[in-house]
Write a protein that binds this DNA or RNA. Sequence first.
DNA 1: ATGAAAGCGCTAACAC
DNA 2: GTGTTAGCGCTTTCAT
Lengths: 351, 351
Amino acid sequence: MSFRTTEYGAVKKTKRITISGIAELAGVSKSTASQVLNGHSKKFRISDPTRDRVLAVAAEHHYQPSIHARSLNVTRSFTLGLVVPEMTNYGFAACSNELETLCRENGMQLLIACTDENTSQETMVVNNLIQRQVDGLIVASSMLSDAEYVKISQQLPVVLFDRHMQDTQLPIVVCEAIESSAELVSRIAQTQRDEFYFLGGQPRISPTRDRLAGYQLGLQRAGVSLDPDWIVYGNYHPSSGYEMFAQLCARLGRPPKALFVASCGLMEGVLRYMSQHQLLESDIHLCSFDDHYLYDSLSVKIDTVAQDCGELAMHCFSMISDLMNEQPIAQTQCFLTPKLHWRSRHFSQIK
Amino acid sequence: MSFRTTEYGAVKKTKRITISGIAELAGVSKSTASQVLNGHSKKFRISDPTRDRVLAVAAEHHYQPSIHARSLNVTRSFTLGLVVPEMTNYGFAACSNELETLCRENGMQLLIACTDENTSQETMVVNNLIQRQVDGLIVASSMLSDAEYVKISQQLPVVLFDRHMQDTQLPIVVCEAIESSAELVSRIAQTQRDEFYFLGGQPRISPTRDRLAGYQLGLQRAGVSLDPDWIVYGNYHPSSGYEMFAQLCARLGRPPKALFVASCGLMEGVLRYMSQHQLLESDIHLCSFDDHYLYDSLSVKIDTVAQDCGELAMHCFSMISDLMNEQPIAQTQCFLTPKLHWRSRHFSQIK
DNA sequence: ATGAAAGCGCTAACAC
DNA sequence: GTGTTAGCGCTTTCAT
């Protein structure tokens, strides 16, 4: 690390111009200035010269209205809160990116907060977002109960996404996981009848439950009877994926023959272990929920259930928008159908 | 896609309780309530019973102070703006994640905005953040000139990161790119003397300039004379990486023997092309600026210059914090030293 | 030990 | 057509 010292001085904090300032300089009242600056000159029949004068002053002084003052009396903040476990997870990064774009295009600002899969941290960040008067909340929650969000949803629109609590009535947008995982697993299980492991995160949250249910269903459909030892739980940190896989290898004295990994983050850990232990050329049959563009370039061929993050984000946004506009929306629970992405030799022909 | 309709009704918009409400319910004045809720009870010698009464009411009603009202008279918003090209780029996602944590731990909220590498969009999002009164701005800019930021920095602290304009005086935090790229390239060039291509983004922005300079220096040190045709420019979108690489292959009628790719995003495109065209097993020598955890699991071995995003984020945060607290800071330009990550057969022994 | 009042920057209802 | 005014929810100085 090195530094370079520049003559960069202390910030002067030039005070920004306010609407009163503009009004004064333009020789009009605050309200007139306000109307003009909000583009309501027509509606309030402001004369063209007046309008132009105000606009000119504003432009000249680089007037930037204060959202805080604005929010204070319209009781909207033009912000949307997004709560995700981690932004480094590719899926969440992609969703965040999409949502940021959608918000921006709609004159809103996205506030992203991370929970690190930690429920008490989740409570904290959600409170923080509420203090900031977010107009709506989109949450990939790590909680086991929706109680907190049910309460919050009495104050402001809440949409759960990616994960959801059992039987929740709250609006949700998720990818269908049971059928898709079952399809993935059953095809593979046809050729992998003697062992087929499952690596999941926290057992009680919906991604794990649904993906596990799909895995079990898949085995059943393939006529493979499940050995309970095949199921391993951890949490959705990559390190947990590493750990679970390491222990599995230790237990077996070799890598498993077939493995379903419940998420992209866990797969990160599995792949790290495999590369560290020269297992990338072994003939393990890997499959997972969640796709990643780099999987195409791996020597191990991973078959996946690929969620469409763009679609996910879009539905979240439109649902929360409707809710914010108090539009009656018919369906508040939306299940997207993910696609299967086949890469292994046997299946790569399948489109 | 499927829907489920629930009995979920319209949001009632229960109005949240304000400090006046609390005051009234507790039978005290607004100011007293305010003092208590800000933890200034000692300082203002509020009696214990009064304090407890206020606190009790607040807790009971789940009082959430409005940041907007607060910001309005303390003229701070407790938010930090972060401007990045794209969040799906792993490096930026990692930085964002780190910064979000740092902000949260320091009672601030991070506002992330994306530019999609587009300068006019950059101007827009920056203005938007300023309207929201961000207390500071951390920017990975796609601009060619620092003029805009020089002006802004008169109003609020600005730190440039990852990228910087030539000779800018503004505070910056970047990874040193010339020496590190030179080191990477010169080692490889020792065994790849007859051709060594360079794939970069926009030619005039600092990441491209510095990484190119390093590449040139590396070739020179290895005694390899540069063929100008080896240098290819595009932009930092993955699709541009794909495109440039495709054209290169078309031009040569085969993949290049050695290639330096200027960023992770570009490499994404290169790898996509390679996997689509069964080139992953070819003996191309790939190296790049920016690392990715999945590179460990690829069959092509990519040697990289690995930036430490945590360190980058940390320095950005501490620098902007100092600036916000108007602390005189000696060094406003910070150059971090990245590490080389060797994966190719020849070098993987190098630690 | 507590309260009254002013004001942060803006919008919107209503006057003129 | 344009100005006056009353808040939005909070902090802070100054009285009491």
